[in-house]
Design a protein around this nucleic acid. Structure first.
Lengths: 173, 173
DNA sequence: CGATATTTGGTATGGTCCATAACAATTATC
DNA sequence: GATAATTGTTATGGACCATACCAAATATCG
């Protein structure tokens, strides 16, 4: 075919081919049709994820915690005494990429690396007192400003159903 | 506080402090506790999204289409005669970043830029015949290998409910 | 009309995240 | 005790995302 390299003077456009704008007043050139895109799980999933992260960051602005950092703090608190490899891998973070992340958290005195006496290669991760305090405040912010909004939007039951299905996909897909 | 810079000889670890491994046979040092992490929507959402994209890429390996490329082809097919800015912005892609993407698709002869005669600044986007053929095959692959698997995992009704909730989050959050 | 502002596609560039290779120190294995 | 494996780390490159800027074309308005 090779598509004749020039085209269309608003030819077969049914609605507003005639003369002026179709809605009398204005500039917005009618929105595009999403079509099958809105049925693609991957597409909708990605979009929703971006929105959720965006909102998370806004809620955490005062504490300057990203979703990834928050997850690290949560996991270290729940599993004290573990080393970098263990924490990183259960979060799906590669060890090399985890180094800078920890450098950041440690420089802010939120967590600390402690050389293990069992295996002097490994660094045990622990939350500092400040880290525990910040995490506690973060949890409250997330619960009241972030997750609460999901409940408002979806309803408690739906929110839980959603979580369950996503977990199923994350684990069994 | 400042965390005494050395610690723990497997001290308060209840289970396997004694002598050997706790499970008799071997190496896996008991999995970490996810804890509240598994209740964080953002975390589970991201995890699920990664899995879905991963599976999508596997299904599309023969066509070499990424989720983003697939969405472009779908949108161009559904909305022929639109320019780069319109297609890019409804996909949430910034114009500068859309250029290389289109270069790629155009070099593979899947779509074409046509200088508009209405507005000689803009490039109208069109699928080539090859592009239409590839997209048709892509749709079949997605439907039979990708989305079908979701149905198996969640069930038709749940899959639709999931889609609805995610769309709600994407649009109204 | 003509001067100015806006829009479009594009380049350049920097940031963040993700992945791989390689390395020194330490520990495990045989 | 020699060799292999593991841990944290550096270096590096790719993919994706965001901003500033530019030339060509168009829109706006005095």
């Amino acid at each position: 075919m090779t598509v004749s390299k020039t085209a269309e003077k608003s030819s077969e456009k049914p609605a507003d081919a005639a003369k002026g704008r179709k809605d009398a007043s204005e500039p917005q050139a009618e929105a595009l049709q999403l079509g099958e895109l809105s049925e693609q799980l991957g597409y909708v999933l990605k979009r929703a994820q971006l929105k959720v992260f965006e909102n998370f960051l806004r809620c955490m602005a005062s504490l300057q915690l990203t979703p990834a950092q928050f997850s690290v703090l949560l996991l270290v608190e729940k599993n004290p005494g573990r080393n970098q490899t263990e924490i990183a891998s259960t979060l799906g973070i590669l060890r090399p990429n985890f180094v800078a992340m920890l450098d950041n958290l440690e420089s802010r005195d939120l967590c600390a690396r402690i050389r293990s006496t069992n295996d002097r290669r490994s660094h045990i991760l622990v939350l500092t007192d400040k880290g525990k305090a910040v995490l506690a405040r973060a949890k409250k912010l997330v619960a009241t400003k972030h997750e609460a909004r999901l409940n408002d939007l979806l309803g408690q039951a739906n929110r839980e159903a959603l979580l369950g299905m996503l977990a199923k996909i994350a684990n069994e897909f």
